[in-house]
Design a protein around this nucleic acid. Structure first.
Lengths: 334, 334
DNA sequence: TTGTAAGCGTTATCAC
DNA sequence: GTGATAACGCTTACAA
C-alpha cells in the first residue's frame, strides 16, 4: 500500500536499519549515506509511520497540551504560541480540554495519552489536580504554564508581584476603597489566582489594614461573571472607588455593569484588569499585560528540548516579565 | 513494561484475538466473554496501544482539525465544540494551524497526518487551498466547517442570506449610505466571506443601485484592522451612516474608531457585526449570531459517524440557522 | 559505518 | 464463538 522504509532502503542501496538511522540523522552515519537516503525519501515523499515508529520504541512526534478551557482568550492565545513552535518542529499537537467546570469530571485519559505523546504541556492546572489523574506519576517530560510545581519545569509570570503592582497603582492614584474581582469564593484551584490575591492583599494592606473588610466579588473569569461581581460590589453600602480584576474579561463585564449603573469607568470607578487581552486597548482598560503567546512558545520549546535532549538536566522555572499598561480606566478618585 | 493485551487475555482465559474482539465489542463475541475480558482490563486499567492498533490495521482513535487561526474567537469556539464531542467519544484531537497569513507557507503535513488520524475536520479553509496540500485526494473521512465543497460533507451557515438580512436591517432602519468592512481587498480565499459580500450587495442594491460606489473597508477580521477600515470609511467625502462588518471583532475596532472620532455608535453611525462574539452583548453590538460551538460539535459528530459507519453513505451539507440579534448599535439615521 | 534479525502490541485471516 | 498466527513498519541490540 503505502511506501515503507524498506522501499527507501532498497532504492538507496542500504539496509532498513541504515535507512532508519539516516532518516533520523543519527551521528554514526556517513553523511553521504544520509544524503542518498534522504534524496530517495524525498523523491517518493516518504514519511515514517508514526505508529510503527512508536511501537518500535521511537518517538511519537507529538505532544499533548492540557488546558482547562479552549475558547477563553488567554488559553487560546497560549495555545497559538505553542502550536507555532511545535509546527516548526514538525511535532503534532494533541489537544485536551480538562476540568472545564460544569462538565462532569471524567476518568482522565492521561494514561492513554502517555502512550501516544512524547511529553505534556499543562496550562494553568495544578499537576496534582484530579483532572490530570496522576500526571505527576508519569515520568514523561512535562512543562507547566502559568503554574508551578516542585521539580517540574515551568513557565510563568510573577502573579503576586504583578497583582501587587496593579493594586499599588490604584493606591498611588489615591484610592482607598479598593475592591477585587476574583474567580470563585473559597480556595482557588489555580495557583495563579491565589498568588494574585496575595498580591492584592499586600498592596491594600497599607491603606486598608483591616483586610477582612476588603470587598471581593467573584466573576469566574468570564465577562458575565465580571458583570455580576461588579453589581454585587456596587450593591454594598459603601462601594469601592476602584476595582482590581483578576482578568480582563471580568473587567469587561465590570465595565458593562458600571455603564448600566450610569457610572463612568475611570471617573466614578477605576478599573484594572489582568492579561493584556486584545480588546483591552480598544476599551481603554488599564491592565497587567503578559506576553501570552510568547509564554506558550517558550514552554513548547522547553518541552521539545527536554524530549530531544537525552541529558537529564531539566530546565528550571522560567519567569516571564509582565508590564502594567496604564489607560484611562484608572484615574484618581474624584 | 506496560501491560499488554496478552496479559489481559491470559488473565481472562481467552486468546489475544478474542480479547481484542471483546474489547472492541465486535458483534460475534459472547457477551459473557466481553464482560469477563472487560473486567480484567478495568482491573488492570489497561488501555490499548494506539500505535500497535493502528499498525495492525485498526483505528488511530484521533482526528485532525485544520484551522487557519487559533486565537481568534470564532475558531477557538468552534474548536471547543469539536473538542467536547471528541472527548466524549474518547477520540483525540490533533490540532493543526494552517495558512495563518504572515507565516510562510510550508509543505502541508496532511500526508503525514493522514497516517495518524482517522479523519479530518477543516475549518473555513477551502479544501483545495494550498495550505491543505492535497487533502481532497485523500479518501479519508472529512467534514468541512464554514465552507463547502462538492461531494464533501459540511456544516455551515447560510452566509449570504445572513449578510443580506443584516444589511436589510440597516436599510429598513432608513439608512441609505451603507458601508461594509470585509477582510481584504480582492477575491477572498474564504467562501464565507465571498458569500457575505454577495448578501450585502444584494441588500444594498435596492437603495443604492450603483453598487460600484459602495464603500468597502478592509479589516482582515481583526480588531485593529476594523479600526483602520472604519477610519478609512470616515475619511471619505460622504461617509456612510451605517456599516455592515463581516465579523464582530472588526466591528469592535470600528466602534473604537468611531469613539476616537467623537462619533456615537448607533446614533451617528450604526454598526452591525457578524458572529455573536461573547463581547457583542457587552458592547451592545447588533450582530448575526451563530451557534459557533454547536457548529463544531455537529461537525465532529458527523465525522465520528462517518468514521465508525462502514456504510458509504456520507452525510450531506448541513446548514445551521443564524439569528440577527438587534442591539443599540443599529438605529435609524438621525 | 553498516547489516542482520528480533521484537514492539495489536488486528485480520483463516481454521476450528 | 474462539484460537493460532501472520502481518503491520519501524527501531535497536548485536555482529560484522
Amino acid at each position: 500500500m503505502a511506501i515503507t522504509i524498506r522501499d527507501i532502503a532498497r532504492e538507496a542501496g542500504v539496509s532498513t536499519a541504515t535507512a532508519s538511522r539516516a532518516l533520523r540523522r543519527l551521528h554514526n552515519v556517513d553523511p553521504a549515506t544520509i544524503a542518498r537516503v534522504q534524496a530517495v525519501a524525498d523523491r517518493y515523499s516518504y514519511v515514517v509511520s508514526p505508529a510503527a515508529s512508536r511501537l518500535a520504541g521511537g518517538r511519537t512526534g507529538s505532544v499533548a497540551a492540557l488546558t482547562p478551557y479552549l475558547s477563553r482568550w488567554y488559553f487560546a492565545t497560549v495555545l497559538s504560541g505553542v502550536e507555532q513552535v511545535l509546527q516548526d518542529a514538525e511535532t503534532d499537537l494533541l489537544l485536551l480540554v480538562a476540568g472545564d467546570p460544569g462538565r462532569p469530571a471524567r476518568t482522565p485519559p492521561v494514561r492513554r495519552l502517555s502512550q501516544r505523546v512524547d511529553g505534556f504541556l499543562v496550562i494553568s492546572l495544578d499537576p496534582d489536580s484530579p483532572e490530570l489523574g496522576g500526571l505527576l506519576d508519569l515520568d514523561a517530560p512535562k512543562v507547566l504554564i502559568g503554574t508551578k510545581w516542585p521539580g517540574v519545569p515551568s513557565v510563568s509570570i510573577d502573579d503576586e508581584r504583578a497583582a501587587r503592582l496593579a493594586t499599588q497603582h490604584l493606591v498611588n492614584l489615591g484610592h482607598r476603597r479598593i475592591g477585587m474581582i476574583a474567580g470563585r469564593p473559597g480556595r482557588s484551584p489555580f495557583l495563579a489566582e491565589r498568588a494574585r490575591k496575595r498580591g492584592f492583599e499586600t498592596a491594600v494592606a497599607w491603606p486598608v489594614p483591616d483586610s477582612s473588610a476588603l470587598d471581593c466579588g467573584y466573576g469566574d473569569f468570564t465577562v458575565d461573571g465580571g458583570e455580576t461581581a461588579m453589581n454585587a460590589l456596587l450593591a454594598q453600602p459603601d462601594p469601592p472607588t476602584a476595582v482590581f480584576c483578576m482578568s480582563d474579561e471580568m473587567a469587561f463585564g465590570a465595565m458593562r455593569a458600571l455603564r448600566l449603573h450610569g457610572l463612568a469607568v475611570g471617573t466614578d470607578v477605576s478599573l484594572v484588569g489582568f492579561d493584556g487581552h486584545d480588546l483591552a486597548g480598544m476599551l481603554d482598560l488599564t491592565t497587567v499585560a503578559q506576553p501570552v503567546a510568547q509564554i506558550g512558545a517558550v514552554a513548547a520549546q522547553m518541552l521539545l528540548d527536554q524530549i530531544s535532549d537525552a541529558s537529564e538536566h531539566k530546565p528550571g522555572e522560567v519567569e516571564i516579565p509582565t508590564k502594567l499598561v496604564v489607560r484611562s480606566s484608572s484615574r484618581p478618585p474624584t
